[in-house]
Design a protein around this nucleic acid. Sequence first.
DNA 1: CCGGTTATTGACCGCGCAGTCAAGAATGGC
DNA 2: GCCATTCTTGACTGCGCGGTCAATAACCGG
Lengths: 230, 230
Amino acid sequence: MARPPDKTARAELLLAASEEFAAHGVEGTTIQAITVRAGRSKGAFYLHFDSKDTAFRALVESVFDGLASFLGDVVPTPKLGWGLAEVRAHWLATDVRAFEYVWRHRDVFRLVLSGGMCERFAFLTDAFALAASESIARWLRYGVAQGFYRADLDVEIASMMIGGAYDGLARELVGRKRKPRLTQWLAQFQGVFVGGLGAQVRPRRQDANGATTTPVPRVARRNRGVASRR
Amino acid sequence: MARPPDKTARAELLLAASEEFAAHGVEGTTIQAITVRAGRSKGAFYLHFDSKDTAFRALVESVFDGLASFLGDVVPTPKLGWGLAEVRAHWLATDVRAFEYVWRHRDVFRLVLSGGMCERFAFLTDAFALAASESIARWLRYGVAQGFYRADLDVEIASMMIGGAYDGLARELVGRKRKPRLTQWLAQFQGVFVGGLGAQVRPRRQDANGATTTPVPRVARRNRGVASRR
DNA sequence: CCGGTTATTGACCGCGCAGTCAAGAATGGC
DNA sequence: GCCATTCTTGACTGCGCGGTCAATAACCGG
């Protein structure tokens, strides 16, 4: 008995919200704009969400859930026994699938990665960031144990760097107008990390500056700052 | 004749604005809050700035001007004739100085790098991003020409990666509570880029996936996403 | 076709902020 | 001390937005 709820309302509102967020940012979007775009009333919005923040949170959570599914499908243990070739092929494939996913949902990721996000939403991404960072560290340790990587690698710093580089890659990706060749991108990316920029065999040598370091910089530019958009 | 203007007002307001922005984000900061913190009246604010955006822009521009001064103090040309050692030492030193600067102004950089910034302020960072990216590419090409780097390096992709990694490093830095050992950080950072993660001499070999690539991935985790905070 | 139930609507309210401006304070010249 | 000039103030205004709720529409079983 009684009128049944319109099951499509929530999904339509969420879609409209994501479009408005993408166009004007979270802060710059009014609830009115969302409801107009969805062709719904303001009341309908409050029927499904407590506030704009709730809607945004729902949006980000659903997208991150999808992304997290790419993490941890294989956990490296000593028993795994994968050679460099298998590991390489498997993870390149996984990377490509993950980045395809990011590209598909680039409107939402753009919000998360470049502005729009208030400090108050950081917890949404932190869980993923932590899981990703740990996954990187696990594989680095596995590689060291298997002899793939140099024994003096500072796993802490290296995983931070690699995580940051993926982060930067994602930022670059979501800023693009056209989809780049992801497989080529990622292969280059991984090639640089594994093989370095160096031309040839460099003798390992103790660095003057400190700590564990090996060879050292050079390319490292002072550049810093924000990676180029577009 | 007549009352002279208070020269300190503008600086005081800008300082107060940066503190409020840091605490509540740009959107979350009210002009009232800025003026209260500065111990000035609302009218005083409008005497010096057209709007909140103008103040934010002034703040970011001044900080980026300082950062840009680290770029391009030496331009690599074939005549330069620097060996790997000189280049390395010079740029590590420059990186350290630049990151010290970022640390000193981390409140502002945090706003620029992680949220708070609306799309509408992107142009503020784009000029720097472009300059930095070009600087990286120049040095990469120099390194290839001098034989430091492998000849088949895709400068386009590599400079994007490196820029992104610096970006990530800066993001990580501004999220820290305590200042890390920057010299060690940057030496590791550059070490990984130049030498790679690989354990030993790997024979150069043609990759199956495509293009110019050399060895290939492995560590590359699917991780992606947001680098860990804190 | 009717009455009971639930979904949906959009005009309305109040708050809080950006921006204004007339009144008043500070200063310098005389 | 007094006037002319410029700086400084903060109460005030209008507006736009988030959030509410009484009225209405849609639906169901009988």
